[in-house]
Structure formats: structure tokens, C-alpha cells
Design a protein around this nucleic acid. Sequence first.
DNA 1: ATTAAAAATGTAAACGTTAACATTTGTGTG
DNA 2: CACACAAATGTTAACGTTTACATTTTTAAT
Lengths: 336, 336
Amino acid sequence: MANIKDIAELAGVSIATVSRTLREPHKVKPATSKKVNEAIEKLSYKTNLVASSLRKQKADAVIVAVPDLHNSFVAGLVQGVENVARENGIKVMLGVTEGKQELLDRHYEMVAGKQADGMIVLDVNTPSAIINNTSGKPLPIVLTCEYEAILLCPRVRFDNIEVAAEAVSYLVSLDHKNVAYISGSRTLRMSRDRQSGFRLGLRRAGLTVNENIIAGGDYRIETGVEATQALIESGEKFTAIVCESDEIALGAIHTLAEAGLQVPEDISVLGMDNIRFAQYGNPPLTTIALKSSQVGEQAMRLLLDYYLDAEAANREIILPHQLIERKSTAQLLSGK
Amino acid sequence: MANIKDIAELAGVSIATVSRTLREPHKVKPATSKKVNEAIEKLSYKTNLVASSLRKQKADAVIVAVPDLHNSFVAGLVQGVENVARENGIKVMLGVTEGKQELLDRHYEMVAGKQADGMIVLDVNTPSAIINNTSGKPLPIVLTCEYEAILLCPRVRFDNIEVAAEAVSYLVSLDHKNVAYISGSRTLRMSRDRQSGFRLGLRRAGLTVNENIIAGGDYRIETGVEATQALIESGEKFTAIVCESDEIALGAIHTLAEAGLQVPEDISVLGMDNIRFAQYGNPPLTTIALKSSQVGEQAMRLLLDYYLDAEAANREIILPHQLIERKSTAQLLSGK
DNA sequence: ATTAAAAATGTAAACGTTAACATTTGTGTG
DNA sequence: CACACAAATGTTAACGTTTACATTTTTAAT
């Protein structure tokens, strides 16, 4: 593989000139530029980015740490990061954590090891580096969705309390009074906030909370299936279900159908996320749209800000959400 | 940030000993090892991976190039690559191509630039580097799903012809004689092969092909919706639809339901991929399982083989597929 | 033609490792 | 207690860039 020295030799110039031709073309005479480019072409030279990184002390790469890619919310976020990264000539490395602290920390070593300039995290855990950070300066890490207020670092998330409260408020506007809830992973701050929002929404409407119709597990469709099963078996009365994800909601609808319950005639189901499948559900799913790609995009922008001014980037961005009415929710028939 | 020199100084040894303590611990006396590790701990030293890469001429990273991440087949493949990569201490970089040749080639520069040791591709296009490769030696690139027989490079894919032929054969066994087909992107070799398989399956059963009930576009659910609409409007007779992806199938079922057609009573629908949502469809989707994570895993293994013996890795792996019977297909009622 | 300033190019150090090779220290044997 | 040999450690040259600084060439003004 040809290196910069080979090009310099063939073009009859110094390596500095070759480097300049590539990085600061305006500083080199057109005639020289031409010679150099011909040599580059001839030897099909490609800059060794590793050497470049080492010298520049900058990798032009970020790592995005996520528990897995099966979830389309997660995939969307990664895609969002990639979009903005690419626009800015930055490469994206993928770090799968499986929800394990150890793997998350291992991924951070890439930024400690200068292989990446920063990290974007969507995970249950918080990198130890942030927790042990005594420098007083924020690290180049952006936390998404999950957050602890005390943490010194840029973050982007949704207003989870309001998201769930609005879900309830919408169902209440359809006269529902007995609203069940299926949460995602309760270990997540995000999930706890949504539960708070759920209770808040109920109280805002002057309704009491029936703890027996609050179920949950994680965000997968299987959870929707199992939790709904449990809900039905509980014998408690409920006419609507708020689900913390569309996957859960889809699982719920599936199980209700198997139990001979009609959605939305018998039970209204409301999801969150607005995944691509939501609108093609049977029935099409009413949901609160949470664009995960936007989270990724904003997180990446925040990281870009960080390089310009670490302090200025140390802030929280709260993204908008939006209720999308489809066919899985309906006015409660009187008498129910 | 502390470097190896700082550690050497603090521990009172040479930098070589520090490096050895990290890479070849058995070669250093326990007492020395202890001193070094204490120094590392104290200064919270982390190896600069960029410098390490430069010196070793190895990045311990691969890049996986895909059109996007919205598709769960694609996400599964990436996840598969990551699994095997992580087991082997290799990092994964993400390259989104948007189906553009230029972006694909740009991503290849990472391996040309030594920032990645190899590339795994799932895309419409083939990297120019492979096409222009006159070296006679295969490059560290693994092509997945798409393939051209002439190409000199490792590849992993499904037996697409057989996949579609079996889909047809299964429907024929349920007495269907008028089978429609909704393809994905016809620009893909994979899609063309599946179409061939579809025709082959029909001919094997002694049936003729009705070109008027072959539709398609891409692999998204929207295609299923639109193509099914067109199929219905065509007025042609068909009692079953073979879809090139589960997303298409889900879209088809959705549209059939809207048109008042029952699945599977009126029309049988068969998908491909076996995505997570398939079994929770309404009705649960009969499909041919194509595990994309396996494709990713095998592709990564092939790349690992490449480093051991480039020639030996230059082969094609064909992964198994499996028909999964659920509720979206049924015996054709006599008289239809 | 001379000269000052600007433009273009060159020289060489630095980025932080790894590993080949050289040297020192330790161990066991006759 | 030499001696051979093994084990442990040290020295130093890469790896391929970028960039501060030094030097040369060009340009324009007198």
C-alpha cells in the first residue's frame, strides 16, 4: 500500500506538500497540485486514517452504545446518529451493551483510547466514567432517554411524565375511567417517569389509581402478550390500556383478540413510539409518536457542540411528542 | 491523558515492560507486573488504541455497510456481525449507504485507510474496489445476500431460488393454483432469484405462470399495501400471495382486510424472513424463516477466516431456510 | 534591477504504541 | 564457583501522518 512518501517521491515534492494538497489545497500551486494528484491516482493512494488520527489527536468517530438492535426505537436512534454524523464527516461505531455495565464501560474505552471522540448512550446503565468523573468538566458523552438530574453531562430525552399523562388524558376524554397500564423495564428512569405521568394523568382527571391493573416487564411484544394475559386473568375491570411501547400495544391487541375481546369496541389500546408497523396494525394503533431518530440526531448535534464548547453542550434537550389518533381507541360506550 | 511513558516512569521500568505487562503478562515478573499495574491504576491509564493500531497495522475493527437500519432484517444482520465481532475483540463500525454506490465506496476507504480491517456488505451495489480488483487476491470484503457468481470474494446468502420454490410448493400442497407474487426490489439479484424460484415452483407443479398477478417494489410494508391494492384492482383471480418479505405480507394482510377479504379463508398469504412481528400478526403469519443474524454471524466468521487464509475464505456459504406454518395460509376450499 | 513582502515548498519533530534485538539478571548444573 | 542458558528487562526503530517552523521562490512596487 502506497504511503505519502511514495506519492511525494513520484510527484517530486515533499511529503508536506502532499499533505497540503489533500488538506489545504488553496495553499499549493495548481501545477504542483496536479502532479500530486496524478501520483495519488497512479498509485491509488488512500490516506492512512489511523496515522492521521494519531497525529491530529482526533478520530472523527463516535461510538453509539445501545443494548441491542432488535428494537426499532433503538435502530431509529442509531440511524439518526449516523445521519448527522455522516453530514459532518464523522464515522459511527456500534457498541452493543446487552444492558451490561461492563460492556458499556468497555465501549467507553474507545473514547478513552482515542479511537472515538465521543459516545452516545441509550442504555439502562450510566458509564462509570461519568459517575467517577471528578474533573468538574463534562465528558464527551451524551445520554439519551435515560437521565439522572444530578449528572454532569449533555442529555436528550422526551418529557416522559407528560407523555404518559397525555395518554391518560386522551383516554379520559373518551370517557374511560378504568385504565390499565403496561410498563417497560421498571429499572429505567424513563419508565418510572412514565408511570408517574400515568398516575398524574389519572389524578388530574379526578380518578383513583387501581394498582392491580398496572403490569409490565420490558418493551418487547412478548411483554404485551403476557401482561395482557395477566390483566385479563386478574378479573379486574378495565376498558383501556396504556402501553409504554407500540410493541407492547401490538402484543396486547393480539392477546385481546385471542381472548375474544374487540379493540377498540371492548377495550381501547394506546401505544408509544409510533413504529412503522403501528399504522398497519389490526386495528391501526393510536399512539404517542416519539421519534427516536430525532433523539439520535440531537444527541449527535450535542456532541458536535461539545467539541466547540464543552460547557455549552452540558444541557438537556427535551424533544416534542405527539398523539396520533388511529383506530385502536374509541369512545367508551355508556353502561360499560 | 497519561501515556505509556508516564506509566513507565512512575513504575520505574521501561515502556517495553509496560507494554508487555499489558499484552504478554507471562513474560514479566509478578513483582514488576504489580508495580506497573499500580501505576496504571493510579494514573487511570488507557492504551491509546489509535497508536496501537498504527504500529500493529491492524485496527481490530470491521465496517458493516447497509442501506439503512429501518428494516429489521438489516438490523438483525448488523447485530449478528456485532455478536461474533465482540466475541473476538473486534469493533464494528456502521456504514449507511442509502443504496448509493458512492457512499458504499466511501465506506470502503476505511479499510483502505486501515481504520477497519475488513467490510461486510448488505447492499444493492458492489464496492468498486472488488470490481476493479486486479490483484488476483480477494479483498477483505464479505458480500451478503446479494452476489454475482463471477465475483472473487467471500459471500454468504440464502438459496433464494429454493426459498421461493418451496413457498409455492407449500401453497400448491394446500390446493392453491392461482398464486400471486409480490417482489421486493427487482434490481436485486436476490429478488430476481426468488422470482425465478416462484416460476420454477409453479412449473414443478405443472401450473402456468400468470404474469398479471406478479407485483412488487421494495421490501417495505407500504409495498405490500400498494401491490395488494393493485392485485385486487386487476380483477385477476388469485387465492394466495407469496410475498418476498414479512413486511410486504403484513401490508398485504392489512389491505386484504380493508377490502373485506379474510385471511386465510379467502386468500392465503405467505411471507419471508420471520421477523419478530410475524407471529403476532392478525392472523399469525406463515413464513419462510431466514435468520439475518445468522448471515451476519457467518459473514463475520468468514472475515475472520480471511485473515488466517485469504484464499480459503474465498467461498460461498449458503444458509438454510425453514418454512414456519402459522395461520395466514389454509387449504383452499373446493369450488374456489 | 533591487528589495520587501507574500506565496510556496521543504525539514523535521511529534503523536503513542509495538516488537525486534540487545542487554542484564537469575537459575541450575557440573 | 564458573558456566551455560533461560528469564526478565531495556533500547530503539518503526508505523504514516500533520504541522510548526525554516527556507526558497515568486510577485509587485520602487
